[in-house]
């Protein structure tokens, strides 16, 4: 009985709120927006301003890059590769100019529905972003109260660390063997 009542509740609530509330929008939905806050006297005006994307002119896509025509295996496969796979760049965790494009201003990795990457690339880029942040290479993209400077961190975190990108997809990272052991 209780289950029936609950089901009835959720049905009516869905009928009233689900689509009708969400579809209300005061600005154009499909546009890149920047949120601006202005204080005029005692009133705070928050508005979403439609802005053109600052990246469109500088964008590099594999379709526009001339390549020697030999990749027949890629074209025959059913699913087209995502743009990072198609570019075939060898990105390292020290390439902060590329990795910083995938993060928000607080250093947080963007989700896959925004980056538009494939699963594997999203995982790879996300790990490399965290590597760059642990190595202290992107200290201007951090939350407010964060230990920005690696030299001001504690214990083992304050010394320079580098990472090996081959470990990203390793199931079990092998112990570093002692090369000088006899």
């Amino acid at each position: 009985m209780a289950g029936l009542v609950r089901a009835g509740f959720s049905l009516t609530r869905n009928a009233i709120f689900s689509t009708s509330v969400r579809s209300i929008a005061t600005t154009a939905q499909l546009n890149l927006k920047a949120i601006r806050e202005q204080t005029e006297g005692s009133t705070l005006v928050v508005e979403g301003v439609t802005v053109p994307s600052p990246r469109t002119e500088l964008l590099i896509r594999a379709e526009n890059v001339p390549v020697p025509a030999e990749d027949t295996a890629l074209s025959t496969s059913e699913k087209p590769p995502c743009y990072m796979c198609a570019l075939g760049l060898d990105v390292k965790h020290t390439d902060v100019l590329i990795l910083s494009q995938f993060v928000r201003s607080d250093g947080c990795m963007l989700p896959r529905r925004i980056t538009g990457l494939c699963r594997r690339q999203q995982k790879k880029i996300g790990k490399m972003v965290s590597m760059a942040q642990k190595a202290g290479l992107m200290i201007n993209l951090t939350p407010e109260k964060c230990k920005k400077d690696p030299t001001k961190r504690r214990e083992y975190k304050k010394f320079n660390t580098y990472f090996d990108e081959r470990t990203i997809f390793m199931r079990k990272i092998p112990k570093p063997e002692d090369r000088f052991k006899r």
Binding site: L32, P54, R55, F102, S105, G116
Partner: peptide
């Protein structure tokens, strides 16, 4: 950094943060 070639572009309904 601003004029460096970009790989990712924001989707149409993204709110800049």
């Amino acid at each position: 950094a601003k004029t460096y070639p970009k790989v990712m572009d924001y989707p149409e309904d993204y709110v800049l943060k």
